[in-house]
Design a protein around this nucleic acid. Structure first.
Length: 273
DNA sequence: CACTCTCCCTGAAAGC
DNA sequence: TGCTTTCAGGGAGAGT
């Protein structure tokens, strides 16, 4: 389940391995629909070269030298894998890009919550997918002033607010739970009840945890792997996520879980107030 | 407008 | 052991 650190890890690996390579051919391997149908005009990227990889929210942007950008979202179960020319297509492989060195970039997504989209560079700022997205938590715009201004008018639970992509992008369930724990804030508190100090602490902890996870190659739950089939390590650093019934590392009380807007929140009722 | 709920989908794991 | 049920959750769209 890739969140921002996992997507960032993949982007960094792709930057090292596929930039400056030419796409000889793109092949659709299934006719199944992802979140949206795979675009019919994908072959427009044949013979283009990859100039840059970037990320917006959890979207991976593959910049091409023909004024196109290939946008990939991994949803819940999507993977990008780099394989050699002996690779045999597997179940749930949806698209392959064949590069000039004969390597294959495979998009595999069992649950098909992911998305593949082709955009012109000039339209990238205006595309529907990005229009309601909030700020990037690892960029300078994420300040105490911004966070204060947004949260003071929000009645919803703080957990839901920090997972709300209109406010900040990329913070999914794992990192929301972990940053609230580290900040000693209950996930059920209404956003507008937080003090300035708590907001500042939470902001710093969100940034710290995301960066720490990126440094560890992301979190591997179920079968998340990076493009070369390696697991991340940050799951070994969880304080609360998935630890319900187990002892809190700080106070030894039992970690509990609750449902908020259909998502499971993990927290320590003793440490988080 | 603000917010919640439901659905999409498959595979792993828990329950019976 | 084997079948059934539950759960995971990002995002879209419907509903309150």
């Amino acid at each position: 389940m890739p969140e921002l650190p996992e997507v960032e890890t993949i982007c960094r690996a792709l930057s090292k391995q596929i930039v400056n390579h030419k796409i000889i051919k793109v092949n659709r391997l299934t006719n199944l629909k992802l979140r949206k149908a795979i675009p019919q005009n994908l072959q427009e990227i044949n013979d283009s070269s990859i100039t840059q990889i970037s990320r917006r929210s959890k979207y991976i942007l593959i910049h091409l030298d023909n004024n196109k950008i290939l946008i990939i979202h991994l949803g819940m179960s999507g993977k990008i894998l780099i394989k050699d020319d002996k690779y045999i297509i597997q179940k749930h492989d949806h698209v392959e890009l064949i590069l000039d060195d004969k390597s294959k970039i495979i998009y595999n997504d069992p649950r098909r919550f992911g998305l593949i989209y082709l955009s012109d560079i000039e339209n990238i700022k205006n595309i529907e997918l990005f229009k309601d997205l909030g700020i990037e938590p690892l960029e300078d715009q994420f300040t105490d002033d911004y966070f204060n201004a947004i949260l003071k008018n929000k009645k919803q639970a703080i957990k839901l607010a920090i997972m709300n992509p209109k406010i900040i992008v990329g913070v999914g369930n794992i990192y929301a739970c972990e940053s609230l724990f580290t900040s000693k804030i209950s996930p059920e508190r209404s956003a507008n009840s937080l003090t300035k100090n708590e907001i500042s602490t939470l902001r710093k902890n969100i940034i710290k945890i995301l960066k720490n996870s990126i440094d560890n190659g992301g979190s591997s739950l179920k079968d998340y792997k990076n493009i070369n089939g390696e697991k991340g390590f940050f799951q070994n650093s969880f304080f609360v996520y998935g630890r319900n019934g187990k002892e809190c590392f700080i106070c030894n009380e039992a970690i509990e879980k609750l449902k908020q807007a259909g998502r499971t929140s993990f927290y320590c009722p003793n440490c988080q107030k």
